[in-house]
Design a protein around this nucleic acid. Sequence first.
DNA 1: AGCGAACTCT
DNA 2: CATGAGAGTTCGCTT
Length: 887
Amino acid sequence: MTDNKKLLLIDGHSVAFRAFYGLHSQLERMKNRNGLHTNALYGFHNMLEVIVDKEKPTHALVAFDAGKTTFRHKYFEEYKGGRSKMPSEFAEQIPYMKDLLKGFGLKSYELPDYEADDIIGTLAREAEEKGFEVVVLTGDRDLTQLASDHVRIDITKKGVKDLKEHTKDSIQEEMGITPEQIVDMKGLAGDASDNIPGVTKIGEKTALKLLHEYGSVENLYEHIDEMKKSKRKEYLIDEKETAFLSKKLATIDRDAPVEISLDELDYDGQDMEALISFYKEMDFNSHLSKLDTTDYMEELAEELTEIDSTFVEEIDASMFKDGMALYTEMLDENYHHSEIICVAWGNKDNVYVADPKTVFQSDAFKNWIEDEAMQKVVYDAKQTYVALNRNELTIKGISFDIMLASYLLTAEDSSSGDLVDVAVKHDYQGVSPDEMVYGKGKKISRPEDESRMHDHLARKVLAINTLSETLDKELKENEQEDLLKKMELPLAMVLAEMEIQGITADAERLEKMKGEFQETLDRVEKQIFKEAGEEFNINSPKQLSVILFEKMGYPVIKKTKTGYSTAQDVLEKLRDQAPIVEYILEYRQISKIQSTYIEGLLKVIDPETSKIHTRYLQTVARTGRLSSVDPNLQNIPIRLEEGRKIRQAFVPREKGWKIYASDYSQIELRILAHISEDEHFIKAFNDDEDIHTTTAMRVFDVDDASKITPNMRRDAKAVNFGIVYGISDYGLSQNLNITRKEAKEYIDTYFERFPGVKTFIDEIIRQAKEQGYVETLFHRRRYLPDINSRNFNLRSFAERTAMNTPIQGSAADILKMAMIEMNKRIKEEKMQATMLLQVHDELIFEVPEAEIEKLEKLVEEVMENTVQLSVPLKVDSSYGDSWYDAK
DNA sequence: AGCGAACTCT
DNA sequence: CATGAGAGTTCGCTT
């Protein structure tokens, strides 16, 4: 051996198929969050890991079969006939193989008309001629014919990671023939699995005997006359053609027109980024956590080309130009509390980095920030606004936000808050993750070497600058420019003001409630322990299920992945037979209020101002809705009286003022009416009818509204909801506690009576399948990669998303526009009323008594008329001394 | 530190 | 076969 080159060739399909059956018993357990089976991918992954680690190849390739037919079918149509169809659980995993291979840094190759065997055979020959060692990984014994002095064939055994190695010698020893003779063997004996016929009455034993005597099929027929007369000889003579054909079929073509050269196959290890995203996609969390990313991180850092930036201790006006990018660095994501630790700004010509102390003392900086005419581009306009506001600066003239732009373009989660995610998503590699500079978890801190931080920030500024141009172009191509510049960006400013304003919370009220709820909890807890006959942690579903289903022996109604379900709907079914569950339900309800709402809210009230400042996340919800965190003020209880009382703690900032709430009535169904153009729906809304009653009348075929019972209306309401969410008969039956058949009848009648809705659903799904995404009324997009998936769950989910997103998303768009307009009008009118909160279809204000009438008129005018649909939009308003009383 | 179950809202 | 949209927080429990 003159050199150490080693080529690893993998028979992709056969190895994956072996992996699939190797982990077949795990089939139902191994699914990702979307319901995609992952057992073949998992097994294949582990095999790759083992073989790559063991062999340390210098070159590698994974070969696949291309299409159904190969050149062999020309000679023999039935080749590989009689094979049963691939199970769909396996087939659905195939498209993801390429992601797995990408992660391993392995190239793959297929060749029309040829099988993977031929590709492998050809490359193995070439490589051996050039002095390589060759290892072939396959699940298929056929490949053993390729074994030679420098070619070894590894075949997967039943256990997933076990391999059996086949060398020229081991084959000779086990089979008694050379690897080359294996095809002669098949010529005579055939191969049932590939539907290769062979010669009648000749099996492996006979073939072996014949081959020992004659060596090959060709030689056998040359000397066939010397064979003494026998039935076998007759068969051999009669089926001479078949024997040659069979040999030909079984022979791997070692001279296939493979157009990839060995040089291209050099292997340089895993592609960390691709591997991480593959693990995430498949929910391979154990792999994810054991991944050693330090090498990768260092590598990334080295890859960054050097950039120029200036750390400045004195600032002057010459450092600011129109169109520059600006970034303010904070270590905690909650910008209401987190300190700015460094500031950077600049463009492609100059990047400046400075300490906040320097920046906030500078008049030149202040002039630039507050000059509307000087445009700035940023990452996260709202964060930037709030951060500067806390330093007595009001930023004006933000013209672009790459975080918002990226969200509009891909509607993918960029909530990690790290600019690097957005950059990488748009193929910009010049910036590193925050984690690399500041560390992660509890250890997040300023780097000791300050210059590292300065460089990091300078890179962010350059990234913002560069990406703002490319993303702007992409937005224009998608007709989404207005969505950014007239909706999301102005909204970011409005939200910033709302967050900074905050809502006043009455801590004393909460403290008082806390005491009362604690008494209830103690009392209910005692009763539960008495019924159970022992003490345990009621908050632990695991301990609770032991008590309920094992100790007390109540029937199990539903199971979760990890054990018995003790969810609300399950407990409600046990209510009649199990007195204890009544107490458990009460305990759960109250303890949720206590921990999340009372104790949780008390923790986030600013003791100085008595205010709560939530943060609205503008780039999380895939439909375009906002979400609210730290705390979430969009899920304050209302349905049950006990929880609703929490709202008494939300009060106006001044005595004598009121909390004023306005919500859109049935906005989603009105949008459905508008988009679907269903005449019955449109008429009902134009006539201001009660939509659920009208639905009930049509579905139950009743001609008089007075004959609609509350139950009929309730059912109709559930169906209307179901339509908006993308209904299934099963889901509706669960919801209404009726049979699946009855639910199906409801749905069928509904579609019959509202044909426009049916047409809308069919049409939106068709459109989604064709273009791969759906849009709201205002061009907000959501891509649906699974809409044509062969996996039922994935596809169904995408179909429901296709119908729900235009509805939910258009409602979100309308609210956003109304908020921008309201903010503007309140300022124009110089009102004291203040917009405080948004809860998906409602806006909450605080208002002086004297302005109530004016606000009422303004809110209605704005909310009902910001957008004109083919049905009217209707707003219901109310006010009171607290949020509780605004009902 | 991260996940799943349970709960809250529109 | 599995089975209604979009979110966030808290808890217990495992790593």
